[in-house]
Amino acid sequence: MSKPRVRPRPRKEGGRLTALPSTLPGPSSERTVLNDASGEQLAPIQELIDLLKRNNLTELEVERGGFRVRLRHETGARPAVAASAADVIPAAPHTRVESATISLPAETAGKVTITSPIVGTFYRSPSPDADPYVEEGDPMKKGQVLCIVEAMKLMNEIESEVDGRVVKILAESTKPVEYGQPLFLVDPTPTS
């Protein structure tokens, strides 16, 4: 069994930046900068925060002399998801999962990512010989089924929460997906 895909959120090492902005305070001022709440002293840290945001990083660690600062940007906060796979009886072949989770990763401004609300196996079509629910470039409507995530013999149909267009399919059919894993990149701007 291959290693399940991990969400492409950068891990500790991946998000680290070694470049030192010239505005970084030297060791002598470290306490002042970290503890003093006056806007003037905190300016360099504010710049680091801007740097973090500008480069779409989740984590930034900078070290200079004895001074080290570590910033983290949580993109977490997702809406609660109603996974209807709560029961384990492998009876109903298809269950609708009310909402696919939507988050806004920074690298795709204006677009939304539809992530998996449950752990399971991703399928692009209702059966092996059927056509996929959607292809890249297809228009899509709110409430439309985009894929299936099979969990414990239960086929959970994942519906879109927005109108728009499928920009990219991010998961591979028949492969396992974890909670929060991006499945589709969607352009929510209404297309004519």
Partner: peptide, 17 residues
Amino acid sequence: LSYRNIPNVLSAAEITG
């Protein structure tokens, strides 16, 4: 919703074998 989420924990066992 995570460590005590029975469907997700069991699905994790299933997809990883």
